[in-house]
């Protein structure tokens, strides 16, 4: 192989190594590096959604598996019939229970995302402004809970929030309240649980946006007489927007479909769609209905998913 000049590597894709193009003929190594993960995801990520969609159009049946087939082949008359049942979707919109569950999930997820942002911002800001050694310490303090069990972190709040738990004991001993507050099994506990468990997902993208910020902009603003609050809202926040969007999407989407938090911390009246889907599936054994709930949830979430993909696409082109 001859020595190539630098420009030979440039192929317009951003990476100079973008093509490992040693061989003009088909490169099987290259093909398999691409096709193995892609095929895996096609089979175990993409096709399952088509299956869910198919089953959402069938009816429940007392059978194994518990749903009817869409295609029916009658050999005697050579008659192939396709039976699509839209009843599950109609029922979703007729029964206000499901609509309420979607709306209440979106509300709970949106409110928690807002508070996560509010708590994460000072942490990310402090991290981005500290010396590299302090920064490493703070970064690992944020990441440590992320490595511990999600389930156990939610569970930790059960002991914290219950009627004779630590928060109530503390508030009673300081005399702030004289009756224990009912916090566990309320929507309040669900908010706390979501903010708590998803905080690292918000801090990390915010931090990476704030870290890139040019500090001389703030100095210039100060020299020109801007008050700290003004330059914060006019300079820092706009520059952090990509991080804010990424963090909000990373918190909001999984929070809408959250199951563990509402079932451990929420009350029986805490309505969330992830829990509805779980109950349809495990308690009612109504697989087609659970599938319809999932398909509508996906449609609701498509918009925020597109948002994050767009912002990622922009980053790639930059």
């Amino acid at each position: 192989m001859s020595i190539q000049t630098g420009s030979a590597w440039v192929d317009g894709s951003g990476s100079r190594l973008a093509k490992y193009n040693f061989f003009k003929r088909v490169n099987w190594g290259r093909v398999s590096v691409f096709s193995v993960p892609t095929l895996w995801l096609a089979i175990f990520f993409f096709i399952p959604f088509l299956v869910v969609f198919k089953i959402s159009l069938s009816e429940t049946a007392i059978a194994v598996p518990p749903y009817t087939a869409l295609l029916d082949w009658n050999a005697e008359d050579a008659y192939l019939s396709l039976k699509l049942n839209l009843g599950n979707y109609l029922f979703l919109f007729e029964d206000s229970f499901y609509i309420d569950a979607y709306l209440s999930s979106i509300k709970i997820a949106a409110v928690s995302t807002f508070f996560t942002l509010l708590i994460a911002f000072p942490i990310a800001y402090l991290m981005a402004r500290s010396k590299p050694s302090t920064r490493a310490l703070l970064l690992s303090l944020v990441i440590l809970p992320f490595w511990t069990s999600f389930l156990l972190r939610v569970y930790a709040w059960m002991g914290f929030l219950k009627k004779n738990g630590l928060v109530n004991e503390f508030l009673m001993s300081t005399g702030i309240i004289d009756q224990p507050l009912i916090m566990l099994q309320t929507d309040f506990a669900v908010y706390i649980g979501i903010v708590y468990t998803y905080l690292p997902f918000m801090v990390l993208p915010l931090y990476s946006a704030l870290e890139k910020m040019d500090m001389t902009l703030l100095e210039a603003a100060e020299d020109l007489g801007a008050r700290p609050a003004t330059s914060f809202f006019l300079i820092t926040v706009p520059l952090a927007v990509p991080g804010i969007i990424a963090g909000c999407v990373l918190v909001f989407i999984p929070a809408v479909g959250e199951f563990v938090i509402p079932s451990l911390l929420g009350g029986s009246d805490t309505l969330m769609i992830g829990r509805v889907l779980w109950d349809e599936f495990f308690l009612n054994r109504d697989w087609p209905m659970a599938s319809a709930v999932a398909i509508v949830m996906l449609i609701v979430l498509v918009l925020p998913i597109m948002l994050i993909r767009n912002s990622q696409g922009k980053e790639e082109t930059v």
Binding site: F34, L41, A42, P48, G257, I305
Partner: peptide, 26 residues
């Protein structure tokens, strides 16, 4: 590559109940 990059990032944010249900049905 575009298809792969779309499929690879989606499981990161997909609600677990959907992933679980869809895999079971598959």
């Amino acid at each position: 590559k575009m298809i792969l990059s779309g499929w690879i990032s989606a499981p990161l944010v997909m609600p677990e109940v959907i992933t679980g249900l869809s895999l079971l049905l598959l």
